[in-house]
Simulated scan of single mutants.
Amino acid sequence: MTTTTSNASSLDGYLGHFEEMKSVHTHEMLKLNDIGQALARCKKDLEATQEKSKEDETSWRSRFRSLRGEITNDMKQEHTQRIVQRELAEEYRALIDELELDQQSAMLNCCTSGKNYINAYNTAFVAYADSQWNAAMRSLSPTLVRAIKLKRMALSISGLGNENQPGYIEPETAIKQLLGGKLTHAAESAVIDIKGEPVLEKIGLHRPALTGVDMNVFGLGLAGKMKLGAELRAKREALGKGRK
């Protein structure tokens, strides 16, 4: 009873950790998606600003030439607007540079949280599978156990060969092979319906999909991720110095 209670407590702990890591990863992915949306919007706005600036530049120069250099009040206002458009475009470019670094940093965080999420899933699933296995072993059918014993006895007298001859198989080994083969074959066609199974409904039957995660970055080892993080910090520092 104590062992069963301890196993259940351990499984609860693994499930709690899984939920925590899932929540952390979801939060990191939301931040990554927010940055991605902001970056896409800024790039679109920059493109529109550049197009508007180009149109205004062409129009202003055309009018300037047609008036032989005479600048009206309207043209002065348009000239000011042209300067504003150019400055706005520069601000968008600067913001895009920052957002791209933010995006790369956020992706690195998502890869870390994703790794923790997957590891937590693996641990929880293995613990659950072990608990199910142990429960099944504790409740083995007496009929099956009796049949195994009889089969082992039968194998010991039914011509497995002399133990001194090549190809001899001990009854213990033979019964393990027979039983293992039968159970493995039966398991291949077994259907697991997670409905009504609280643990599997919570963690799922398969490893969580890390949609939106850069798997190249995800696959980096600790040293690779540390190197990438250092590179991003250096780029951010250089970007900050360039703006002063």
Rank of each mutant, 00 (worst) to 15 (best):
D130C: 07
L150W: 00
N119A: 13
H206I: 11
L183F: 09
D97R: 15
M75I: 08
V191M: 06
K149T: 07
R82L: 15
Q85G: 00
V213F: 05
L178N: 06
I175V: 15
G180L: 03
T211V: 14
D130W: 04
E51M: 14
L46D: 11
L155I: 06
K44V: 05
I203E: 04
Q103R: 13
N33Q: 12
L46K: 15
Q85C: 02
S131Y: 00
A124L: 04
E237T: 14
G242Y: 00
T49M: 10
K225S: 10
R93H: 02
P198K: 12
Q104Y: 00
P208I: 04
R68W: 04
G13C: 00
D12P: 00
E78K: 12
Q85M: 08
L150Q: 11
F64H: 11
N134A: 09
W133C: 13
G242T: 06
K225F: 07
S141Q: 03
R86L: 13
D97W: 03
K195W: 01
L39Q: 03
A147V: 12
L11C: 05
R93K: 12
T5S: 11
P208Y: 00
G181M: 10
I203L: 02
Q37I: 14
A154P: 00
N119K: 13
Q165I: 08
A186D: 12
E47I: 05
E163G: 06
K76D: 03
L179H: 00
L205N: 06
G69C: 09
S62H: 11
R41W: 05
K225E: 09
G242L: 09
I148S: 10
L222K: 15
T72K: 04
S23R: 15
S139L: 12
A147W: 07
K31N: 11
G196A: 14
E28P: 04
K31A: 12
W133S: 14
S53P: 00
P208H: 02
A234N: 12
R93M: 06
R146I: 05
M29E: 00
G242C: 02
K44S: 11
L205F: 04
R61H: 09
N33I: 13
H206L: 10
A38S: 15
E20H: 14
E98M: 12
I118M: 08
L205I: 15
S10N: 07
